[in-house]
């Protein structure tokens, strides 16, 4: 048994196909990016090595790059402060909904399961200035003064993007907490009730602390998602107006495929990966604390 399970040839043959694809598509491009990030390549003419020039430009002279980072933090913050508390509360309350529980759970996840392509395009129509559903709704309830060019003004555009991203991602956040809540043993509920705990006490003093690990990982996932945000922005505003909704992914895409600044775009790619790794590591470290077993 042991010899068979450490047979080098079998191991190689079984690992090779998966990792060949994985290396070719995920890791090797990272190094290709790294190489070209030191050049002034435009995709056509011969390129020159320019050392750290692109990185210096990005970090010191490119306000859009910093704006993209700021937007990622804004979105992450909105996930953390609005979406996730709402998701935790929903997951807890849903237990008390009796027979409707299963149906409601299913419905709440539906927006998350649909292609971001469809939902983003749908929101573009809803938010459109003249005939958009939102502005018409405001008219209908007599709040015509609240009408906005939701995607056309800098401050509303980023708010709209954040709202749509939260709407789309809510199902995921909710489902994570819901399975967490369901995973808490019934004995604890029983014991708490025998001790005379109210539903409020039960949820705040027992369920919430036991959800800690789920909350931690969910928030890490949410922040990473905020930094990786692309689909919604790309389809709704392309980073505009005036770069106000730019995220790292859309910015690099624009630099690469609209204005052919390949060297520069590759430098953004590299920094993008570094930022994602740093954010993950930082959040992992921050959230590390012991929770009792159950």
């Amino acid at each position: 048994m042991h010899r068979m399970m450490s047979d080098k040839r079998t191991i190689f043959l079984m690992m090779a196909p998966g990792f060949a694809v994985f290396f070719a598509i995920v890791f090797i491009p990272v190094f290709v990016s790294l190489f070209y990030s030191f050049t002034d390549w435009d995709g056509i003419s011969a390129y020159r090595m320019v050392g750290l020039h692109n990185y210096r430009e990005l970090l010191l002279h490119d306000p859009v790059f910093w704006k993209a980072l700021r937007n990622a933090f804004l979105l992450g913050g909105a996930f953390l402060l609005i979406q996730h508390p709402l998701a935790v509360a929903t997951a807890m309350i849903l237990q008390y909904c009796g027979r409707a529980e299963k149906a409601l759970r299913t419905i709440l996840f539906i927006p998350s399961i649909i292609s971001g392509f469809v939902t983003s395009k749908m929101w573009v129509q809803i938010l459109s200035t003249q005939f958009g559903l939102l502005n018409r709704l405001l008219d209908a309830v007599g709040l015509s003064t609240w009408r906005q060019d939701w995607l056309g003004s800098s401050s509303w555009a980023i708010a709209s993007i954040i709202f749509v991203a939260m709407w789309q991602g809510f199902g995921y956040a909710f489902l994570l907490y819901y399975t967490g809540v369901k995973g808490i043993p019934q004995d604890l509920h029983e014991a708490a009730r025998l001790d005379g705990a109210t539903a409020w006490q039960l949820n705040t003093r027992i369920v919430l602390p036991l959800l800690q690990p789920v909350i931690r990982t969910s928030i890490i996932l949410a922040f990473i998602a905020a930094f990786k945000q692309m689909d919604t922005v790309y389809l709704m505003t392309q980073g505009g107006p005036d770069n106000s909704t730019q995220f790292l992914a859309t910015y690099l895409y624009q630099k690469a495929f609209s204005i052919n600044l390949y060297g520069y775009a590759n430098a953004i790619s590299v920094l993008f990966i570094i930022v994602c790794l740093l954010v993950t590591a930082a959040l992992n470290r921050m959230g590390r604390q012991e929770v009792g077993e159950f």
């Binding site: 690469a256 993008f272 994602c276």
Partner: peptide
């Protein structure tokens, strides 16, 4: 953790 968007450009050329 690696964002797929960071591979779009290099993979396009590869």
């Amino acid at each position: 953790i690696i964002p797929l968007h960071a591979t779009l450009l290099p993979n396009f050329f590869i």
